[in-house]
Structures are given as C-alpha cells and as structure tokens.
C-alpha cells in the first residue's frame, strides 16, 4: 500500500485559515488501511481544525466526504454536488489523490492533509515499513524475494557493503541489512548459486530516471 501520515495540525490550520467553507476529502483505500486519511481520520481532522480555529475567533464550515478511491476520475466526479459553494478542498489521500482532485476541479485551491511516505507493508499493528520503490524492473526473483533497492540503504545490487554487522545495517541497529536477509533466505531455499550471479548495472530509466512514467495499455484505452 501507499503509506502516509497526517501533517502537523499547525501546518493544516494555516492552509485553511483564509477560508470560510472547505471540503475535506478522505480516501477509502491505502490511507484508510494505514489510518492516515480514511473516514475516521476525516472526522478527527475536521473536529480538530474547527476547534483550533475557534480559539482564534475563526469559524469554519467543513464538509466531510470519503471517496471509495481518490485516484480515479469516476470517483472524483462524485464530489461535484459537494464542491459547490466551498472555498477550498483539503485532501487526506496520498499525493496521487490530491493531484487528481486538483486536475478535476480547476478553479479550486487544493491542499494536502497528509505527507505521502512510501510503498510499504504492515509489519505488525501500527507499524509500516518500506518495501518497494517502484523501480520498474523487479529484481525480487533473483534476490530471494527481498528488495535490495527499497531495503538496502545504499541500494547495492551484488552483496553487502562492509558496514553489515551481525545482520544489521550500518546506518542503525534498528535496520536489518537487506543483503544479510537476502543471503539467509537464499541459503534456506538452497539457492546459494543465485547469490554468485552478478546483477549487471541497473538501468534506472525505468525507475523514473527517464522522466515521468506512464503505462499505456492499448487494449484498454478508450
């Protein structure tokens, strides 16, 4: 999932202070799962903003709505009846959702309520960790299912650096060395040979080095 965290309330208050009426939009997908921008967080933020602003004598009307998904135009159209009469929109979706709302409602100031963090997985309740950086040419098939790009601090492709000590990465005792994990897993699978194969220098164009990326599926295009 795409993970996110709410921005500090102080920053959000400054975004909305000039306005009398805003629409606060959540998303029912990733940001709901990581408890950053679902229906419940929309309610919490709306109350928080109203109460914080009241203390400086400002009253604000906040309309709340959570879309099934905020990165597809079909869902964003749903906001049309609610957007009428508001001065601005604040989105609790990831950066993709915020941009889609801005693209659809051209005359409307749109603000992000969360900081979008990374593509990750839930390690245990309340903990999310980075797992993939969308390099566009997945290596997991040769690295024992552990990503050396998202999980090695130096994005090394062929074994650990000299900083790998007792399974931990040199940047912190709290970070597992990705290459130790890869080696352990390959050994467990009896695939040590795999480790000896050299991974050639990576072509980073597929990872965004070639400019903004796009997928076009001719069979699906309208």
């Amino acid at each position: 999932m795409i993970t996110a965290e709410r921005k500090p309330l102080e920053e959000l208050i400054e975004f909305v202070r000039p306005f009398k009426r805003i629409l606060l939009v959540g998303c029912n997908e990733c940001v709901t799962v990581c408890s950053a921008g679902g229906r419940k967080e929309v309610g919490l933020l709306a109350s928080g903003l109203k109460m914080a602003l009241l203390q400086s004598g400002n009253t604000i009307e906040i309309r709340e709505h959570t879309l099934e998904r905020q990165c597809d135009p079909e869902y964003i159209d749903e906001l049309l009846p609610m957007i009428d009469g508001v001065d601005a929109v604040m989105s609790m979706a990831c950066g993709c959702g915020v941009q889609e709302v801005a693209r659809r409602y051209k005359n409307m100031p749109v603000f992000p309520a969360v900081n979008t963090k990374f593509m990750g997985a839930s390690e245990r309740p309340g903990v999310w960790a980075e797992r993939c950086q969308g390099c566009g040419n997945c290596l997991l098939g040769v690295t024992g299912g552990i990503c050396p790009i998202a999980r090695c601090s130096k994005r090394l492709m062929n074994g650990p650096c000299g900083g790998s000590v007792t399974g931990k990465c040199e940047i912190s005792q709290d970070v597992d060395c990705a290459w130790q994990l890869i080696w352990d897993r390959l050994k467990e699978l009896g695939l040590e040979d795999q480790y000896l194969k050299i991974i050639p220098a990576k072509d980073w164009r597929t990872a965004g080095g070639g400019g903004p990326r796009k997928i076009i599926r001719e069979d699906l295009t309208a």
Partner: peptide, 11 residues
Amino acid sequence: VDAIHIIKAFE
C-alpha cells in the same frame, strides 16, 4: 473508545 469519541466529546 476511539479517538473520535473523545474528540467529539470536547467538540
């Protein structure tokens, strides 16, 4: 008891 119940009580 969820955060939203507590915040709504204050609101």
